[in-house]
Simulated scan of single mutants.
Amino acid sequence: MQSRDISWNDEARAKILEDSDRVLREAVLELAKTSEGRSSDEVYADLISSLKDRFIDFKPGPDIRKYADAIVAGEFSG
């Protein structure tokens, strides 16, 4: 077996992605409840803070900014 042959099977890979999406969704919806009157930069920082310790090698991408902007715009309902 080669090192490149070591990987998660499709079922495990799908579960990892599903769990990751759930963590992101929960963080976004929780901040949407408590971020009225806050700036997008503040919400962005809170999202990063909420997510960074939940993932190995977390690096925020444009999705985090998109969700911070949507929270500030009131696009999510409780």
Rank of each mutant, 00 (worst) to 15 (best):
2 Q>V: 01
1 M>E: 04
78 G>I: 08
22 R>H: 05
21 D>N: 13
68 A>N: 02
52 K>R: 14
3 S>Q: 13
22 R>S: 04
45 A>F: 00
39 S>W: 02
35 S>P: 03
11 E>C: 01
63 D>S: 15
12 A>T: 10
73 A>M: 05
76 F>D: 00
64 I>C: 07
5 D>S: 11
33 K>S: 14
29 L>K: 05
77 S>Q: 14
55 F>K: 04
4 R>F: 08
40 S>Y: 01
40 S>F: 06
23 V>C: 06
18 E>I: 00
13 R>A: 08
56 I>H: 15
66 K>C: 11
74 G>E: 08
54 R>F: 00
46 D>V: 01
36 E>S: 12
14 A>G: 03
25 R>F: 09
65 R>K: 15
20 S>E: 10
67 Y>S: 03
66 K>M: 14
21 D>Y: 09
24 L>S: 10
66 K>L: 15
59 K>S: 14
30 E>K: 11
18 E>N: 05
35 S>E: 03
3 S>G: 08
39 S>R: 06
53 D>V: 03
57 D>N: 11
40 S>K: 12
29 L>W: 08
22 R>I: 10
48 I>N: 07
21 D>V: 12
46 D>I: 01
4 R>S: 10
26 E>P: 04
43 V>D: 07
73 A>W: 02
40 S>N: 03
58 F>C: 09
74 G>N: 06
22 R>D: 05
21 D>A: 14
50 S>G: 15
8 W>Q: 06
62 P>T: 12
29 L>E: 04
8 W>Y: 13
39 S>C: 02
37 G>R: 02
69 D>M: 11
26 E>Q: 15
42 E>T: 08
71 I>R: 05
13 R>Y: 01
53 D>S: 11
69 D>L: 15
76 F>E: 01
58 F>R: 12
54 R>S: 14
3 S>Y: 01
17 L>I: 02
17 L>Q: 11
31 L>K: 10
77 S>Y: 02
47 L>M: 08
76 F>P: 01
47 L>D: 01
